[in-house]
Amino acid sequence: MTPLISAPDLAARLGEKNLRVVDGTVHLSFDADGAHIASGRETYRAGHLPGAVFAEQITDLSDPDGEAPFAAADPDRFAAAVGALGIGDDSTVVVYDTANGIWATRLWWQFGLEGFDDVLVLDGGYSAWTAAGLPVETGEIIPDTASFTPRRRPERIVSTDEVAAATGDRSVLLINALDRESFASGHIPGSVNVPFAELVDGSGQLRPIEELRQLFDEAGALDPSVRPVTYCGGGIAATAAALALQTLGRDDVAVYDGSMNAWTADPARPLW
Results as ranks from 00 to 15, higher is better:
G83Q: 10
A268I: 01
D23I: 10
G40C: 06
S259C: 09
A238Y: 01
A184P: 05
D90E: 15
V194W: 03
V192Q: 02
V82E: 03
A7M: 03
G24N: 12
D31G: 06
Q205F: 00
L107E: 05
V163M: 12
I175Q: 11
G124E: 07
L14W: 01
A240E: 13
A238M: 06
P50A: 06
P154W: 01
A80D: 15
S225L: 11
A52L: 10
E137C: 10
P3S: 09
G258S: 07
D144Y: 00
S259L: 10
G34D: 05
D257P: 15
A55K: 14
L113D: 04
A32Q: 14
V200K: 05
L14Q: 07
R152C: 01
S91K: 07
L271H: 08
D251H: 14
S147C: 12
T167D: 03
L248H: 02
L107K: 12
T92K: 03
M1I: 09
F30E: 14
G86D: 09
I142Y: 13
G202D: 00
T247N: 09
R207E: 11
A197Q: 12
L206Q: 10
D76F: 00
V121D: 00
D223I: 05
Q205P: 01
Q110Y: 04
T43M: 10
R41A: 14
E16N: 11
L222K: 12
A128V: 05
E181Q: 14
T247I: 14
V121P: 02
P50D: 04
R269D: 08
E162S: 10
P228M: 11
L243R: 03
Q205E: 11
A80C: 01
P267R: 03
V194Y: 02
R106T: 05
D76Y: 00
W108S: 02
T92G: 07
A146L: 10
A177G: 04
P195I: 02
V226F: 08
L19A: 13
G258V: 08
G249P: 07
R213A: 13
L243S: 04
T264L: 13
P69M: 02
D31M: 09
